[in-house]
Design a protein around this nucleic acid. Sequence first.
DNA 1: AATATTGTAACAGAATTAATTACAAGTAGA
DNA 2: TCTACTTGTAATTAATTCTGTTACAATATT
Lengths: 145, 145
Amino acid sequence: MGINSRLSVGIHILALLEINKQGVNTSEYLASSINTNPTVVRKITGLLRNAGLVEVHPGVAGAKPAKEISEITLFDVYRAVNPDHEKELFSMHDSPNPMCPVGKNIQGSVEPHFKNAQRALEKELEKVTISDVVKNIIDKENARK
Amino acid sequence: MGINSRLSVGIHILALLEINKQGVNTSEYLASSINTNPTVVRKITGLLRNAGLVEVHPGVAGAKPAKEISEITLFDVYRAVNPDHEKELFSMHDSPNPMCPVGKNIQGSVEPHFKNAQRALEKELEKVTISDVVKNIIDKENARK
DNA sequence: AATATTGTAACAGAATTAATTACAAGTAGA
DNA sequence: TCTACTTGTAATTAATTCTGTTACAATATT
């Protein structure tokens, strides 16, 4: 049960690209901030690249946001790092009994509610941008002083 | 990625208890409608019992809703079948680097947004009752004739 | 007592996730 | 050009989760 941590990694990458934009953000550097393996970072960065969210080139060190971070929502990142987006968030039990009035109709009766719930979650993620997260990180960092 | 199918099974059970309330709803009968194993049904039914949603007794065949089904929301079922409810829906990557300004603050900056998204999903599930689902199943069944 | 049902533990197989290793392909600079 | 470094990607592993399955104890009914 639960949603994988790739969204949090994707957000971390994008926020760090912005905050360390004067530096060279190699996968190794990003990995050391996230505390994971550079290959993991490259995999996620590749998904972000496919979605048009970061610029990164084979052989050349460093990555950059491909858009204004105020234009990248958490939902954009969520979709980017979960590319098989045809899959529904809630699983439905397979093949209920078509001989039973409940088995025959349950999926059609429940699916819309699952979709609504999923859509509500996605809409909430759409409200927040990487820029919002970056501002908050900077505020928190200043408040520590 | 994704949420397990126990919610859909739990809804199926409760809807069937209502629609077949004149019959004796053994775990075997429920399982035949859901198309799963009676033990799976008993496990889920046990979770629903723990949450006060169904009545079921060792040794005595059949289960019944423990409340009016118009008072049981999909969120009630969701919570019942996912009893470790302290766990957050979105996973966060572990132990980011506290030496990095982003690593140090990212979790605190992202967590509220994840909670908001999760809460939005839950609120949507709270809007729908088992009674709504049952009515829809009956409507669909009548429409087939 | 005999029978049937629920409750529960234990286990297996599949799928997913995250980390890791290995290496090919590419770029940049000496 | 050659060397060093980086990204891209495939393959593998370990851990976890999920669903189904078997087995059996505990309980109730007849």
